[in-house]
Nucleic acid binder design. Structure first.
Lengths: 331, 331
DNA sequence: AATTTTATTTAAAACGATTTAAGTTACATT
DNA sequence: AATGTAACTTAAATCGTTTTAAATAAAATT
């Protein structure tokens, strides 16, 4: 491995000069600079990132904490974050918690050790709320995406209004004439609140919802479909936690001989895979890429120590109802 | 920030003793060890990862270089790699190249600087072949997934037999009676070779294929569908580069009034989203998770400096034809 | 010619850990 | 009592950079 000393020796200068020269500092003579740079190139010298990180107190890495790596919603956001950070030469450490609080706190401890310069959290668990706030207060800049911070002074939030989204879907179904509408997802999540609000406004009974602790996948949708068939009173419409669940549920129902939307209207949330189905599934669009970019921009700002204005600390992104072919009036 | 010196002072010992005590070295007296550990805990001491990395010449990070973050094939593999590395306390830096050779070589340079302890490459570009081999030879342990190394002595390869997969699909269509079969994808890729072989064996003409330079997405499938409709002689069967492309193409065809599989038989490759469609799409299963695990295992072994046996340097994983409802005899 | 100013260069400290070899005790052996 | 040995502890070197303050050399001013 060729170090700065090797370059110094070969160029006949001191390591200090090499460092300055390679960073194009004009304290060092133009000619010396060029010469040192040439020598460094000829020796294939590459500054050691680990040594650099130690002295600069920065690894040029940010942590991205998401529940599931293998989930189009998060991977689309991750892609946007990556694209944004590219120009600033930041890299991303990918931390998938699998909705496991222990894993999450393991990552948090890594972060405390100075592995990253900042982090973006996008998780549903609230178990480590205290710990995360401590992390933000005493260790690193942090930004939340779609997770509510107790104190946005400490952790800015990038939010999409998923409660509003679920509400719009519920309203959409109600407007079509549905009265028996089920919700598939977790009740401790704001999506459920939106559904609840819609049902209560219309004076309709809430239909027992199905809670998944771990993940929100196609297979969970199938499982939910099975449960749905066992209900004494069959719903005519259903709002799903996300698109994948909606697709799984729909696929199951179709195989079970139900017609979509004739027998059952289905809605997804997040507009990822919903257009992959036939019929295309009605859903709520969330500006994932814009949210990712915004989070990245904000985090970089915080890392640089720039002031974050109050109105930047809580950014709400609007959601959009996308009516497709999986919803229709009940029979 | 609390450092090892602070702990040393508070515990009334030297930094050396603290270091040894915290690493549970039995050179240091049992009682001293316990005391130091207690003091460290009470001060919330966390060893600085950057300093540690410098002295240990290891960041405990591995690089994962994939073409697209937002692609279920890769994210499923990434998930498996993450799961495997978890136990060894390794983290993943996610490097999405977007099939851009410049971006790829940017990552390579980062790696040369010692940012990671090893890397897994899963890319289709071959532009940086030389550079990557140099990286493997002179800097870090490297493993390939589904990419062919010139010299597997230097870079072990985890391969799925995608040529065989494409061949099986083509045979499947031929056996159903199809003669006009199109291939959607890149011709410089081994999938095309498998298709080619099948067509040649059957004495059927190859139907012009559509090349995507950047990504293999649903939208690219739609674009391919449009092109397909303009062909003078309509194919009755089509083999797509991957599932997402197959889904896009199918969705387009259905909207254009074609019946699947009656009017057109469609095949995907990689078994990711193909079962999301109605009808479910025939595809080739690739053991993504097993491949990811294997790559991670091999890489860790190399990082530890263990000997890699010759038969471990080129591991071929079998693929499986999954017949579903998108393929049938031509009309 | 002596002094000040300016332009370059560099020695040395710092970053915060690990590790090696040397130093210090305490205890057993002769 | 002198010596050897085992059990701990620590001083100091090391990792490879950056940065600051000091040193040096050259030019400009008096």
């Amino acid at each position: 491995m060729v170090t700065i000393k090797d370059v110094a020796k070969a160029a006949g200068v001191s390591p200090a000069t090499v460092s300055l020269a390679l960073n194009n500092n004009d304290k060092v003579n133009r000619e010396t600079r060029k010469r040192v740079q040439a020598v460094a190139r000829s020796l294939n010298y590459i500054p050691n990132a680990r040594a650099k990180a130690l002295v600069e107190k920065s690894t040029k890495i940010i942590g991205l904490v998401i529940p599931e790596i293998h989930n189009p919603f998060f991977s689309e956001m991750a892609q946007a974050i990556k694209d944004y950070l590219q120009d600033s030469d930041y890299s991303i450490i990918l931390c998938g918690t699998d909705n496991n609080p222990d894993l999450e706190s393991k990552y948090i401890n890594m972060f405390k050790g100075g592995l990253v310069d900042g982090a973006i959290f996008s998780c549903i668990t609230n178990v480590n709320n205290e710990v995360v706030h401590d992390l933000a207060r005493n260790y690193l800049p942090l930004v939340y995406i779609d997770r509510v911070a107790e104190d946005e002074e400490v952790i800015p939030m990038i939010k999409s209004n998923l409660a509003e989204g679920a509400y719009q879907l519920t309203r959409h179904l109600l407007d079509l004439g549905h009265r028996k509408i089920a919700f598939i997802g977790r009740t401790d999540e704001e999506r459920f609140q939106g559904y609840l609000k819609g049902m209560q406004e219309a004076g309709c009974p809430v239909i027992e919802s199905y809670i998944f602790d771990q993940s929100y996948t196609f297979d969970q949708g199938i499982a939910a479909g099975k449960t749905l068939l066992t209900l004494p009173e069959k719903p005519t419409g259903v709002v799903c936690f996300n698109d994948e669940v909606a697709l799984g549920l729909t696929q199951f129902m179709v195989k079970a001989g139900r017609k979509i939307p004739t027998d059952l209207s289905v809605c997804g949330i997040d507009n990822t895979v919903s257009r992959y189905y036939n019929p295309e599934i009605t859903t709520i669009d969330v500006p994932k890429q814009e949210m990712g970019r915004t989070a990245a921009r904000l985090l970089l700002k915080m890392i640089k120590g720039e002031k974050i204005r109050a109105e930047e600390r809580f950014i709400h992104f609007p959601v959009t109802l996308i009516k497709r072919d999986s919803t229709a009036p009940p029979r």
